[in-house]
Design a protein around this nucleic acid. Structure first.
Lengths: 228, 228
DNA sequence: AATGGAATGTAATCGATGATTACATGATCG
DNA sequence: CGATCATGTAATCATCGATTACATTCCATT
């Protein structure tokens, strides 16, 4: 009917025939647009229709690839989680020390940094109302991998007799809850009402992490725990 | 036009003339229905139209009392926050000990208990995307009050030489982030993927709080900090 | 007490969204 | 070459937040 079809931009440059009825790789494009939209305008800015609009496709097209919005957001979350985990892995590679506490700290720092730089992506991964965590093997696997990494470091720390209290699982969950809480407080915009300026948020979160780690250790340090 | 007007149920029984054109106390009724709806079906269940429906009023009526949805949710948050603070005050009255650490623990416990029992109300208070925190004097005042309470207890603890690191503000924010993170992890449904069953969540959160408090203290305790 | 203005509620409507259905197109493989 | 199936379109629905014009009631001034 419409003789003119809107020119379809192919940002990725991946193999896709231009101006065809079929998109070529709509699924990936939708996920990419979902991530971009989230990064730009927050969670509420991500709508199926807008994602479709950006991909140059009709509002109903996404439903060919995802049964509902939760499924789309879950796919977006999988991509976000993959990037998150990649950043944690990289931070561990950068931390050359084999001191388990320093490596734990690196993970915590990477967690906080990523959440601060990708607030909405962090929100998508976290909120189980938007995604179907249980229905994604990828999310579960990435999560389990990070957990395992953490537990083994804590066990190593306990083996070396560094910890005041030897309960790796409890410490893991407590530490997780701390960084999770710091990240969410920042993202939820709570720091202003706690007298914390935007500019000092990063430093504060780091000191907060150090305070917690110091509390775990036998040796009474202050601030940076273990400077090799 | 319609000769029959739907019978208007008045659940509260407060002074309100039945079957009149004017509701009598719509504003309060809307807030109450908002709280109830949130408690029943989560954040997404709260819509202006449904709240109006429950109050037996037309879909546009709420806009006479609140300029937009954020304003309504902010009013709901104010009520929720008042209840939250009341519970904290009560927990402090129940804690007869004057040991600041025990009193701090009571606050943390009350925080966790309330969040666990009122997950959506906690979410409403927390999420600055749904409410206008800055625009509410009530929310700010309640928040400041809780903060002040906490800081004074920490200063008292420092005065008694109980703390390893004397930095009340840092400790306050770190502790807040911990309980905030624990509450959100529970509410966001993350514990299952962390191998924590529903039934053990409460005990775990308590032990987590104790782990943190133990880390703050000079004396190396394990578990319950300071048993008078 | 009467009356006129202010407060409060209704009805109708708009644009956006998630979702479904019937239909159109074209890629793929026999 | 042609049939089948994946993929995209068009049209449609219900719900939601929000706005506007209108109706009703309360209340204060006279």
């Amino acid at each position: 009917m419409s003789t003119e079809k809107a020119s379809r931009t192919e940002p990725g440059g991946s193999a896709a025939s231009a101006s065809t009825y079929h998109h070529g790789n709509l699924r990936e494009a939708l996920i990419a647009e979902g991530l971009a939209l989230a990064a730009e305008g927050g969670l509420d800015a991500v709508s199926i229709r807008e994602v479709a609009r950006r991909a140059g496709v009709s509002p109903g097209a996404p439903f060919r690839h995802f049964p509902d919005k939760v499924a789309l957001m879950t796919a977006v979350a999988e991509e976000a989680m993959a990037r998150f985990r990649a950043e944690i892995v990289m931070s561990l590679q950068r931390e050359t020390s084999d001191d388990p506490i320093r490596r734990i700290r690196a993970i915590g720092k990477a967690f906080l940094d990523w959440a601060r730089r990708n607030p909405t992506h962090f929100e998508i991964i976290s909120s189980r109302r938007v995604i179907d965590f249980a229905g994604s093997a990828s999310l579960g696997a990435d999560n389990a991998q990070i957990q395992a990494q953490m537990v083994s470091l804590l066990e190593e720390a306990a083996r070396r007799g560094l910890l005041r209290i030897d309960d790796p699982r409890l410490i893991q969950i407590t530490g997780r809850a701390l960084v999770y809480g710091l990240a969410r407080m920042l993202i939820d915009g709570q720091f202003p009402s706690w007298g914390v300026a935007e500019t000092e948020a990063e430093a504060l979160m780091e000191r907060s992490l150090d305070l917690f780690l110091a509390g775990l250790l036998k040796a009474p340090t202050s601030g940076d725990p273990g400077r090799s």
